[in-house]
Amino acid sequence: MREEWTACLARMAETRDRALFARLFEHFAPRVKAYLIRLGMAPAQADELAQEAMLSVWRKAHLFNPGKANASTWIFTLARNLCIDRLRREKMPCYELDADMPDGDDRDAGEGAVISDRLAACIRRLPEAQAQVLYMSYYDGRSHSEIAEVLGIPLGSVKSRLRLAFDKLKAMWGESS
């Protein structure tokens, strides 16, 4: 599958085909957002940076070299760099990230694993309805409308459950630090 995304990005770089970019965006944007959240960004900021990262993919596609990296590594590196730039601009605490960091899909290394485990423990403490919409939104990459349709609940309920889940996660995150 990685080779398929790498070929897709390389073709998009050559042809500037918007349909190829739409496929890349649909696949990578939710994953980039989840990655940025794991790096410590607030969900709203992560969403904004994911959009910015995907825009960079479109603008910088001509710089992509499939001989040096696969598409996911290149895209997650763009996102990581945007995250670091944002943290520096806002003078927020910044974690040093290893330049040889594994692919953004690999969650079993270093600090990312610790944060991921800590977040998973907090999510397990949430009420099931809140954990379910949180998982569907950030791990499955589904839109709020899709979640409402799948669960058969109003869109407002999806948004309320997410807001409540984030409030509880913030409180739990503060407790365990």
Rank of each mutant, 00 (worst) to 15 (best):
R163N: 02
D17Y: 03
S72Y: 09
E128W: 11
C8N: 09
M92K: 15
I153W: 04
L36T: 05
L155I: 09
L63I: 06
S72A: 15
E52Y: 04
R142S: 09
P127N: 07
G104R: 08
A120C: 13
Y138F: 10
G104D: 03
G67Y: 02
S157E: 10
E3N: 14
G110K: 10
F21Q: 00
A50V: 12
R59W: 09
A53F: 06
A42D: 15
V133T: 10
F21D: 00
R59D: 09
L63C: 10
P66L: 10
K170V: 07
W173L: 15
G156C: 11
P66T: 05
S56C: 15
L119E: 02
I75T: 04
N81Q: 12
I147F: 01
I37W: 02
D106W: 09
A10L: 10
S143G: 11
G104E: 08
A79C: 13
C83W: 00
D100N: 12
P102H: 12
P93V: 15
D117W: 05
F64D: 02
D105T: 13
R16W: 05
P127K: 14
A79G: 11
T73Y: 12
A120R: 06
A69I: 01
R80T: 11
I147S: 10
A44L: 12
G152R: 11
A129E: 07
A79V: 04
A71F: 03
E90F: 03
A34S: 13
T15R: 01
A129L: 09
A46T: 14
L20S: 05
A61C: 12
P66Y: 00
F28V: 00
L9R: 06
S177M: 13
K91Q: 13
R118A: 14
K60C: 08
